[in-house]
Design a protein around this nucleic acid. Structure first.
Lengths: 206, 206
DNA sequence: ATTTTGTCTAACAATCTTGTTAGAACTTGC
DNA sequence: GCAAGTTCTAACAAGATTGTTAGACAAAAT
């Protein structure tokens, strides 16, 4: 057909690789399975991406880019009251995870088995994160001085929120059976979201 | 030497397998590497344990047993005031994770790639957990009626605590670089412990 | 039209990985 | 000491997995 045909194959391999790597992880993913899912011959994969590792790195770096969105969001909406903004951030991050439920486990798992990947993450988001922590810390301290917020370090607040949000989705395969259907599962998830907001609010608001 | 020699080889394989499986996961672990670490020939491993899968299942079930300890602890010390007991449970669970920092990721990762293992977990701890939730829920409701605790479901409280505690250790490889040495890392961990206790206390105490 | 470039496949090859087997060496009970 | 069982090794085998290569086929450029 058109030019897209060749583009398609290359892209199809990328799509299939993304699915396989995110579902099964690097080690459990076989290049033959990626080729099968993409509907191309196995040699095709090596023609376009040379090696499994190279293909994986493309996916990994793309997922780091995806992760950037909620981190960049931390530094936005500075006109909104900090307390409302924190609530917004929790919701945004939670909804982000709802869209990419496999992302946290994928990143944590791969970084654990290949510490080199931690470096890549740090290079991509380390500075942004440090700067945002500093800014938010100043804001928190002002609110604390005014007596309307409990003292907390920005890092701890960050870890509290990320822990609660991420673990909801990491542990979902284990607790999924509690919900009897997809609708009940959504209810369980939404309930957790409310609970997490409440927990953080109680932790920071006076 | 003595009788222990044969016992030793079998046990050494088990020890090596535990290390490899917990460090690298099922897929990334090679039976040759286990044999190498155990200091035995590769055929030895199959002689005693037949297959990689069988050996893995032994390790997995052993780790489920390990996990039982903090779950059983939930139902203990009923004479102590609920609020103090919850604090104690958080500390106990946190210190448990300090002893077995690789356990949560191992269990979560393997259950994700093999849902059959979730069933095993449920069979081993499901009932205990359900009963304990019911008991603690009654206690919570009493304290809420007395006006000395904020309303919360036992399940949410459980997930809040587990999320915060577990994520500390799951994310440690990523945040480890913040600490410059082992001592600073211990400080970081102890700081998180305090922060988690505070967060849960603010969530439940009036 | 023909060279050139890029896409694609079938077949092959090296290596890794799990698992088996025949029989040696060692233990143990008698 | 010797028969019987157990432990152990070296060699082998089947299959999976990643990667290569020669050349067919198609598209674009000249």
């Amino acid at each position: 057909m058109e030019k897209t045909n060749t583009r398609n194959k290359k892209q199809q391999i990328l799509n299939a690789a993304e699915f396989e790597f995110l579902t099964n992880g690097y080690e459990a993913t076989k290049t033959t399975q990626i080729a099968k899912r993409a509907g191309v011959t196995h040699a095709m994969l090596h023609y376009y991406y040379q090696s499994k590792e190279n293909l994986f790195n493309k996916i990994f770096e793309d997922k780091i880019e995806t992760l950037k969105a909620p981190i960049v969001a931390l530094a936005q909406n500075k006109d909104i009251d900090l307390r409302d903004r924190i609530r917004k951030i929790i919701e945004l991050h939670f909804d982000f995870l709802k869209t990419y439920p496999d992302l946290p486990h994928f990143l944590i798992n791969e970084m654990r088995s290949n510490p080199q990947l931690i470096k890549i993450l740090r290079e991509k988001v380390g500075d942004t994160l440090r700067e945002t922590f500093a800014t938010i810390q100043t804001e928190i301290d002002e609110y604390v001085a005014k007596g309307i917020m409990k003292p907390i370090s920005a890092f701890d607040l960050f870890l509290d929120i990320v822990s609660l949000n991420v673990f909801t989705f990491i542990s979902l395969p284990i607790f999924r059976h509690i919900a009897y259907d997809k609708e009940k599962e959504q209810q369980l998830i939404e309930n957790r979201k409310k609970e997490i907001i409440q927990t953080i609010n109680h932790r920071i608001l006076k």
